[in-house]
Design a protein around this nucleic acid. Structure first.
Lengths: 148, 148
DNA sequence: TTTATATACTAGTAATATAATAGAATTACT
DNA sequence: AGTAATTCTATTATATTACTAGTATATAAA
């Protein structure tokens, strides 16, 4: 029950886009270098994010990526869900026809409960929340480096 | 990010033990038949549960398994955690030395948060809660079958 | 003390999913 | 045209999962 690298890299990718002050599109190469992730792999990961409208893309020379809408209007659930396929820990929760026992199964209610608390948590955090924490940490780190 | 069959089968195994009124040990074969799960596979799955003291075992003829302590004193987290290895969605949460960025990483705080809400939820449900729901459903099902 | 029957232990394996990599195609600015 | 970026389509290596098989060990009863 591990989160895939797609989700992990994908959130870092979105954080980088969100933290970028520029209004100019950001190259995937820059993100890849900053986050030490394969550019090719990131180019795969960004596809579902684009499909969901979370990023806007510009092709060709001087292309790149921008956030599709303000970070304050993007909830982490929207990022993780498409990257993970869905936010469903057990298949039968999303598709009850997979198992004869679904209607009477009480363990299924537990899997449902787990899905629910995860979804609720990821809905409660926006990308902007994350960007703010990120900027705060960077500022503090800088301060420490210059002190003494 | 799927829950393993080990966890799913393991919880059903524990539920079956909990729902058993008998004070006599239950054979794995019976559980396997009732739940339509390979007996051999169940015999693997039950090992960590035994190690945690959640089940008591009796070897030899007329052997079998019993709950190690009352169902009311077993929280689902205690069952799922050893079966899943741990309840950690991203490795770096449990072991911060895996990544240089751990201390400054803000996405890590999200993975921590996800782990936390899951653990909290599974801590809030006891095996007895599950057994009661199970018995209730069985009773209602019987009632429906006899009605009309 | 033998036999039957259960759990316990140790390996091995097939199938699936994950995490990439590779290269050609497309788009668009200069 | 040329360059630099994204996009699309395959392929592949690795790891994990979900088992299966076989042997060893324990114990109750005949």
């Amino acid at each position: 029950m591990k989160l895939s690298t797609r989700s992990r890299y994908g959130l870092r990718l979105m954080l980088t886009l969100g933290a970028s002050e520029k209004k100019e599109p950001v190259f995937l190469r820059e993100i890849a270098r900053a986050e030490e992730i394969s550019e090719k792999y990131l180019s795969q990961i960004i596809i579902p994010l684009k499909a969901k409208g979370l990023v806007t893309t510009f092709r060709g020379a001087h292309g790149g990526y921008l956030l599709g809408r303000p970070a304050s209007e993007i909830r982490l659930r929207e990022i993780i869900e498409p990257l993970e396929g869905d936010l469903c820990l057990v298949e039968c929760v999303a598709n009850s026809t997979l198992c004869d026992r679904s209607t009477e199964c009480v363990t299924r209610e537990i899997w449902k409960g787990m899905d629910a608390v995860l979804a609720e948590y990821l809905d409660s955090v926006t990308l902007e929340d994350l960007v703010q924490k990120y900027n705060l940490k960077r500022r503090n780190k800088g301060a420490v480096e210059y002190s003494i």
